[in-house]
Amino acid sequence: SIKPSSMLPVTIFDKHSLRVLFHFARDCPPARPDVLVVIISMLSSAPVPITNIRFQSAVPKTMRVKLQPPSGTELPAFNPILPPAAITQVLLLANPHKEKVRLRYKLTFDLGEESHDESGDVEQFPPPESWGNL
């Protein structure tokens, strides 16, 4: 039961009608004040299904990142009448030295017949000293 923090989500990717957001959880895992819990949300407004969605991430060697299985790997074509579909995936980030966090991601997906391979950096993280009660 991860409670989102009051912080606004960060849009880390927004192209080809696919949006990826980072929501920061309010609390750290029990007894792990060095771990930030990030809920990744993926939303599509594409007129065709997006399939084979895969999110990978890397952090500096002084940190560790662990991705839990996503709630799915595809999103249906956007339908303004139906509630929006979303994929959620939990990312755990360990930062024992409380350094400024930098995260690299790779996002691959098929938009209809086109395959896409996107990557980028994320630096908008809450300051490590505030982790645990965001």
Binding site: S57, A58, V59, P60, K61, V65, L67, Q68, P69, R102
Partner: peptide
């Protein structure tokens, strides 16, 4: 020119690594 970035990175992780 961009200052040399001394950061060394872990390999990419996904949910099935």
């Amino acid at each position: 020119s961009q200052s040399g970035d001394a950061t060394t990175w872990n390999s990419f992780q996904s949910s099935d690594t």
